[in-house]
Amino acid sequence: MKEFWIYTLLRLVLFLGSFGIVAGIWVLVADEVPVLWAVVIAFVMSGLGSYFLLNGPREALAQRVDTRAQKMSTKFEEMRAKEDADDA
C-alpha cells in the first residue's frame, strides 16, 4: 500500500503546483482568477505532467497490484483444488 500513497501524494503535489502556476500567471495577466477555469487547466496540466513525470511510481504501483492479484489468484486456486479433492 506504500506505493499507492506515494503515487497519490505525488499526484496531489503535482496538481497543487500546477494550480499555483496557473493561478499565479492568471493574477499577473488579470486581476481576477476564475477558480473553476484555473482548476480545470491545472487538472489537465497535472494529468499530462503525471504521465511523463510519475512513470516510475506508477509502474511500482502497477507491479505491486499485479503481485497481490497473482497471490490472491494462486490462493483461490489452491482453495478450490482442496475443495474439489475433499468432494471426491
Results as ranks from 00 to 15, higher is better:
residue 72 M to F: 05
residue 61 L to D: 00
residue 51 Y to A: 10
residue 76 F to Y: 07
residue 38 A to E: 11
residue 26 W to E: 01
residue 30 A to D: 03
residue 81 A to F: 04
residue 75 K to D: 07
residue 74 T to M: 01
residue 32 E to M: 13
residue 86 D to N: 12
residue 9 L to G: 05
residue 65 V to R: 11
residue 21 I to R: 14
residue 20 G to F: 01
residue 49 G to M: 01
residue 18 S to I: 00
residue 59 E to G: 06
residue 64 R to L: 06
residue 3 E to V: 15
residue 60 A to C: 02
residue 63 Q to H: 13
residue 59 E to Y: 08
residue 57 P to K: 03
residue 2 K to W: 07
residue 40 V to Y: 06
residue 6 I to M: 04
residue 62 A to I: 07
residue 10 L to A: 05
residue 3 E to K: 06
residue 20 G to T: 02
residue 38 A to H: 03
residue 5 W to V: 00
residue 86 D to W: 14
residue 33 V to A: 08
residue 7 Y to I: 02
residue 75 K to F: 09
residue 3 E to S: 07
residue 74 T to H: 03
residue 75 K to N: 06
residue 8 T to E: 08
residue 66 D to V: 03
residue 4 F to N: 04
residue 58 R to Q: 12
residue 57 P to T: 08
residue 25 I to S: 11
residue 28 L to N: 03
residue 67 T to A: 10
residue 7 Y to H: 10
residue 44 V to L: 01
residue 48 L to W: 10
residue 75 K to W: 11
residue 82 K to H: 06
residue 6 I to Y: 10
residue 53 L to E: 10
residue 23 A to L: 04
residue 11 R to A: 11
residue 8 T to F: 14
residue 4 F to I: 05
residue 2 K to C: 09
residue 5 W to A: 00
residue 77 E to S: 08
residue 9 L to I: 02
residue 66 D to A: 10
residue 7 Y to T: 02
residue 19 F to Q: 05
residue 77 E to C: 08
residue 60 A to R: 00
residue 20 G to Y: 02
residue 50 S to A: 04
residue 88 A to R: 05
residue 7 Y to E: 01
residue 88 A to T: 13
residue 85 A to T: 13
residue 75 K to V: 10
residue 47 G to P: 00
residue 5 W to Q: 02
residue 39 V to D: 06
residue 38 A to W: 05
residue 78 E to V: 01
residue 61 L to H: 03
residue 22 V to Y: 09
residue 72 M to I: 10
residue 71 K to E: 08
residue 63 Q to T: 05
residue 25 I to Q: 10
residue 86 D to P: 04
residue 56 G to P: 07
residue 10 L to Y: 12
residue 31 D to Y: 08
residue 32 E to F: 12
residue 24 G to C: 07
residue 25 I to W: 15
residue 37 W to K: 02
residue 79 M to G: 15
residue 76 F to A: 08
residue 87 D to I: 13
residue 39 V to H: 06
residue 66 D to R: 13
residue 77 E to Q: 10
residue 41 I to E: 07
residue 62 A to M: 11
residue 2 K to L: 15
residue 80 R to Y: 04
residue 2 K to E: 09
residue 39 V to L: 10
residue 41 I to C: 03
residue 10 L to S: 03
residue 10 L to G: 02
residue 41 I to K: 01
residue 15 F to S: 00
residue 78 E to I: 01
residue 83 E to G: 05
